[in-house]
């Protein structure tokens, strides 16, 4: 099953609507609540990142029996140093992002802690792509 959402950069009043819609899908698919929370926390942080930093973005999600694969691709300023961006506390967020309760440099760590695999690629001046996978079967057996 495939699900696609578009994300508008800078529009904080809509930030989280894609994550909210996909959370409802996961509930309908009877995914267990612990796994749902891991997926939506990672997805929501990544969606907020697009709103906070990029001009626009797309979220493409594939769900099968074993896993949820999420691809978030944005057009935006990109990340110059991904290792630095992964460090807790490192942030380039604007004051308006901080006013929204984000921008403390915790987002990518929060994503990493909730997914089974995470791959980030970025080109400065063009955009950033996040690929994350959450295994469904391994979590259910835990």
């Amino acid at each position: 099953m495939n699900f696609n959402y578009s994300v508008e950069g800078g529009n904080f009043s809509k930030a989280g609507t894609a994550s909210s819609q996909f959370k409802k899908v996961l509930k309908q698919l009877n995914v267990d609540p612990i796994t749902i929370k891991r997926i939506v926390v990672a997805l929501y942080e990544a969606e907020v990142n697009i709103v906070a930093h990029a001009w626009e973005g797309k979220i493409d999600i594939e769900v099968d029996m074993e896993k949820v694969y999420i691809n978030l691709a944005d057009k935006g300023p990109g990340i110059a140093d991904i290792n630095q961006a992964m460090k807790p506390g490192f942030s380039t967020a604007s004051p308006s992002v901080r006013e929204m309760g984000f921008g403390a440099g915790m987002g990518l760590m929060n994503i990493k802690n909730n997914v089974d695999s995470l791959h980030i690629s970025s080109e400065v001046g063009k955009g950033t792509e996040l690929e994350m996978t959450i295994n469904l079967s391994s979590i259910i057996s835990k």
């Binding site: 930030a15 909210s20 959370k23 939506v40 929501y44 907020v48 984000f102």
Partner: peptide
Amino acid sequence: IQTIRTSEM
């Protein structure tokens, strides 16, 4: 609104 969105997630 992010207070509520975050709580939802």
